[in-house]
Amino acid sequence: MTETAAESRMVFQIYIRATADQVWQAITETEFRRQYFHGSTIESDFRPGSPLRSVSPDGELWGDDIVLECEPPHLLSHSWRSLWDPEAVDEPASRVTWRIEPQDGGVCKLTVVHDQLEESPATARGVSGGWAFIISGLKSVLETGEPLATPPS
């Protein structure tokens, strides 16, 4: 991860032995997402301007966001509000961008950028440790069929 205080931007990259379509499915389909994203679902038609909702395993609305850009299977950008966190719920939306780039040898580079956090310090604190676990879990599910055991404490 790299983070610059002036921009409040977090960048995470990982290489995954999977096709771009497989990585895209892992990001956009609930059955995959539940395995690596704290059991949450994802609901959207992924058209720019459409809602993108994330719901906890208990039915709590964790994210009520908007799709900003979508170019399957290479790019998804959406707003981000941390509705599960009472300290962050009233902050302005930030942005998350998922970029999938096929590489030689059946591998894709996944880059996740979480930015526009300048006015959302509680969100930045809340997600800074979580993204590495999320994308590592995504990689684990795609490569082994098994999620990571539990999030780090």
Rank of each mutant, 00 (worst) to 15 (best):
54 S>W: 09
44 S>F: 05
114 H>F: 07
58 D>M: 15
27 I>S: 05
86 P>K: 11
124 A>G: 07
122 A>K: 11
9 R>F: 04
27 I>W: 07
111 T>F: 07
140 S>T: 07
145 G>P: 00
10 M>T: 08
61 L>M: 15
130 G>A: 12
16 I>S: 04
134 I>K: 12
99 R>G: 10
107 V>M: 14
136 S>H: 10
26 A>R: 08
80 W>K: 02
6 A>H: 05
53 R>H: 05
109 K>F: 09
92 P>A: 09
26 A>C: 05
53 R>P: 02
108 C>Y: 05
42 I>R: 06
48 P>C: 03
28 T>P: 04
72 P>H: 04
66 I>P: 01
25 Q>D: 09
76 L>R: 08
149 A>Y: 00
125 R>N: 12
63 G>R: 01
1 M>P: 06
145 G>H: 04
52 L>W: 03
60 E>I: 09
118 E>V: 11
65 D>C: 10
85 D>V: 01
45 D>P: 05
81 R>Y: 01
35 Q>P: 00
86 P>F: 06
111 T>Q: 11
144 T>F: 04
108 C>V: 12
140 S>N: 09
33 R>H: 02
151 P>M: 08
109 K>N: 14
65 D>H: 09
132 A>K: 15
6 A>V: 06
111 T>P: 07
141 V>R: 02
138 L>Q: 15
70 C>T: 06
109 K>G: 12
110 L>R: 15
141 V>N: 03
15 Y>G: 15
88 A>L: 00
70 C>S: 13
70 C>V: 05
153 S>W: 00
62 W>N: 05
131 W>F: 14
76 L>P: 00
93 A>T: 09
58 D>I: 06
85 D>Y: 01
62 W>Y: 10
11 V>K: 02
99 R>L: 13
52 L>K: 03
17 R>D: 06
20 A>F: 05
1 M>H: 08
80 W>P: 01
130 G>M: 13
136 S>V: 04
128 S>R: 15
49 G>H: 04
72 P>E: 03
40 S>Q: 14
110 L>V: 14
56 S>R: 08
34 R>Y: 01
32 F>Q: 06
94 S>N: 04
91 E>S: 02
69 E>L: 08
73 P>S: 05
17 R>P: 01
46 F>W: 07
29 E>Y: 02
62 W>A: 08
129 G>Y: 02
29 E>M: 13
24 W>C: 06
32 F>G: 03
99 R>M: 14
29 E>H: 11
78 H>L: 11
112 V>C: 11
5 A>M: 14
1 M>K: 13
27 I>R: 09
89 V>R: 15
4 T>N: 13
153 S>N: 01
25 Q>R: 15
66 I>T: 13
27 I>N: 03
89 V>F: 02
131 W>T: 13
13 Q>C: 15
107 V>T: 13
119 E>I: 12
5 A>I: 12
137 G>K: 14
55 V>K: 07
128 S>H: 14
34 R>K: 15
115 D>W: 14
70 C>L: 06
138 L>H: 10
64 D>G: 03
143 E>T: 07
139 K>H: 11
40 S>W: 08
41 T>S: 14
